[in-house]
Amino acid sequence: MIGDTKIKVRVTDAVTINPLIKQFRFVSCDGSDLPAFSSGAHIFVEMEDNGTRRLNQYSLMSTPEDLSCYTISVRRDDVGRGGSVFMHNSVKPGMEMVISHPINFFPLDVRARKHLFVAGGIGITPFIAHMAQLLGQDHKFELHYSARSHGLGAYVDHLKDIYGSKVHCYFDDKNQKINLENLLRGQAIGTHVYVCGPKPMISWVRQTAEQCGWPDQAVHYEEFLAPPTGKPFVVELARSKKIFTVSTNQSLLEAIEAAGVDAPYLCRGGACGQCITNVVSCDGEIEHNDHWFEPDEHNEFGTIMPCVSRFCGKSLVLDR
């Protein structure tokens, strides 16, 4: 297994959870156990979508101790680049796919006296694994989960069955909202808060925690950017001597890979800095969509993160 970071899996189930969400279950093609993982981890799922190779990341929601399978949930995004629609429409039981080893950017801090989970919509998935990992251990936790409606609140009933009063649900259509300030102010010292959900929710939790005097180290969030779509543009790779067009629904990184150039990456969501590439020359505007650098740092270094960033202008030449 050393050096081999890809795993061949077979889809055993593709189950509709609600009108927006489908759940997929994978087992290894050779019947062996899958690698153990830590709760909060995600995998990349490789897709061959009409000639574009996509690597989309999804949080693992299966029980970390169960090595027989991995499960993920995919929310369909009809205006996105197409990965989630591909998963919903084209992935069927029996199909073989390639996934990455698990990677964790959203682990528990197990020193915490208590874990406070705040989930919005599909952001529930990493917490399902977190709670499974904590169950049976001597850890305190509670979940505050908000969704548009009970019908769109995936796994609400399932979680209430298992965890009972540790699970608190809030539904938009009933005008229910987390009383966040009250919640955060009421926690004992040593509590850690974790948030996963839409971007405004993450900002809301981080800002409220700061206003309530929470230390940064006790506030955890997972924010993946899907690569944004945009106008097509041309890019030149100086070292590889290649020129090609990045299409609307393709990221710059995907286009570099499609051109047969091996480029480093890890999160593919603008968060880890692994894919940073030097800009040789640029006549136009780089649209920096990452949240790795501070906005002014890019100018200083002349760099771009091709996993999420795009370009608009006359010419862009990269050192790759």
Partner: peptide
């Protein structure tokens, strides 16, 4: 440190 924080399972 940056490199190690990105160390992946299965790729020592």
């Amino acid at each position: 440190l940056k490199y190690l924080l990105n160390l992946r399972l299965g790729a020592p």
